Amino acid sequence: MDAFRHTARVVATTVAALALATGLSTNAQAANGTLHYVNVNGDDFTTENPANGECFLLVSGAIRVDNRTDSEATVYSDHGCEDPLGSPMPPFSSRDFGEPVPHSVMFG
């Protein structure tokens, strides 16, 4: 019975160490910098260090988007980041929009 407990303890310790090491290496990455946009009403919005792979809504749609981050940004005509508007915006670039205006953006 002692051999079983010892083996179980070794396995549990190994699994815990693996989970800790894997968990630390898979932290969510963020785009370093600022997303700034002006919506169709002329209101300014800013988001600091947006997470890569997360869909962000652009309130009322954007007429100008400034990607002041170190990650590529893709803007979308819909609210769910499914219908891209043109090619992705490179890091540290800006773009003006007419119709249709983007309603969401995703980084990474």
Rank of each mutant, 00 (worst) to 15 (best):
A8K: 01
H103S: 13
M106H: 09
A62R: 05
L85N: 07
P88Y: 01
S104L: 12
A8C: 02
V10H: 00
F56D: 06
F56K: 06
F107D: 05
G53I: 12
F97H: 08
M89T: 11
T69N: 08
N67C: 01
V10D: 01
E48G: 05
S60L: 11
T34H: 06
V105C: 12
A3V: 04
S94Y: 07
A16D: 01
A31K: 07
P88V: 01
V15S: 02
G33E: 10
T74D: 09
A51T: 15
D96C: 05
E54T: 15
F45V: 02
A31S: 11
T7K: 03
S93V: 11
P100W: 04
A12Y: 00
A21F: 08
H79G: 07
D2Y: 02
V15D: 03
N52D: 13
G98F: 12
P84Y: 06
D2F: 03
R64Y: 09
G53W: 05
D83I: 14
S25V: 12
S94K: 11
P91N: 08
M106N: 14
F107P: 14
V38I: 14
V40R: 08
G108L: 09
A51S: 10
F45Y: 12
T13N: 04
N39Q: 03
P91L: 13
D70E: 06
P84L: 08
V59W: 02
L20R: 02
T22L: 15
D96L: 12
V59F: 06
V101E: 15
G80F: 10
G61T: 01
R68S: 15
V101Y: 13
M1N: 03
D44V: 10
N67I: 00
N27K: 11
G53H: 04
T13G: 14
V15C: 05
G53Q: 04
A8W: 00
S87G: 07
A73G: 06
A73M: 14
V105W: 07
H103I: 02
R9S: 07
S77I: 06
R9K: 05
P102L: 15
G42A: 06
S77D: 10
E82T: 14
C55S: 06
A8Q: 03
A30H: 12
V10A: 06
N39K: 02
P102D: 12
A3R: 06
H103K: 15
V10Y: 00
N32Q: 13
V75E: 01
D70K: 04
R64Q: 15
F92I: 12
R68Y: 09
D43G: 04
G33N: 09
P91H: 06
G33L: 11
D44C: 01
P91W: 10
T34K: 08
V101R: 14
A17R: 00
A12R: 01
A19W: 02
S94P: 00
D44S: 12
V65K: 09
G86N: 03
A17Y: 00
N67W: 05
N41H: 07
P88E: 02
L85K: 08
D78K: 04
N32L: 13
L18P: 02
L35N: 03
V40S: 10
R95A: 11
